[in-house]
Nucleic acid binder design. Structure first.
Length: 206
DNA sequence: CTTTGGATCGTCT
DNA sequence: GACGATCCAAAGG
């Protein structure tokens, strides 16, 4: 297991320092690796913190969103709808609370572990085809808020295996947000079967 | 203190 | 396509 990821390069902190509208699409086709599992990032959304009505950080720092105001390259994990966790890669600069929501992964390794975490009735293409599903598949929860994706202190990193982002990413408005839903800050790998709902509608292709 | 509604998912129709 | 589950952070009084 470990040897098969030997040539993977963990993304450096500098990767996360920019605007999430650039970091987000750049994360497509990168790998979330850890806990004996790996998944290719195939869908993301950008959130612009205090400047974004749809962001949890829009009204300023709170206990819940504190991680987003911290340094880039960490994982902001939040609890929602009474039962789900979702995970974001925090972007820079520090204090502006910008982040990229990880919305879907294509399972690459550790699929048996994901099946155990997600349940026996779940087909492979839905093991991590949503922001809460991928957290469940990786066992990501409350304790992982603030995990460092560069040092891997919680056994979670994002790595590059040499696969570039798609030349043509599909784009749409963000899913499930009540405000600023029209801004086109959602990107996914066109045609990937693990992408979450809503790919048939909007979808501009660059 | 109380109220409100959520960056979702699975099930049912 | 619609809806219920189920908790809690944040806003308002």
């Amino acid at each position: 297991m470990k040897s098969s990821f030997a040539r993977h390069r963990v993304l450096p902190r500098s990767f996360y320092k920019g605007d999430p509208r650039e970091v987000g699409p750049a994360l497509l086709n990168k790998l979330l690796v850890g806990r004996g599992r790996a998944g290719r990032i195939v869908e993301v959304e950008a959130y612009l913190g205090t400047e974004d009505p749809a962001s949890h950080a829009y009204h300023g720092p709170t206990r819940r969103n504190a991680t987003m105001f911290g340094p880039p390259g960490r994982l902001y994990v939040y609890f929602t709808y009474g039962m789900h966790f979702c995970a974001n890669a925090v972007c820079g600069p520090e204090g502006i609370s910008r982040a990229v929501l990880l919305r879907a992964l294509a399972p690459v390794a550790g699929i048996e572990l994901m099946r155990v975490a997600r349940g026996p009735a779940v087909v492979d293409r839905h093991l991590s085809s949503g922001p809460a599903k991928l957290c469940q598949a990786f066992g990501i929860g409350r304790a992982d808020d603030g995990a460092d994706l560069v040092t891997g202190d919680k056994d979670l990193v994002i790595a590059d295996d040499g696969t570039p982002p798609p030349a043509r990413s599909a784009i749409s408005g963000r899913v499930g947000v009540a405000s600023a839903a029209e801004v086109p800050w959602r990107w996914w790998v066109e045609g990937d079967l693990n992408v979450s709902r809503g790919t048939s509608r909007v979808a501009v292709v660059l």
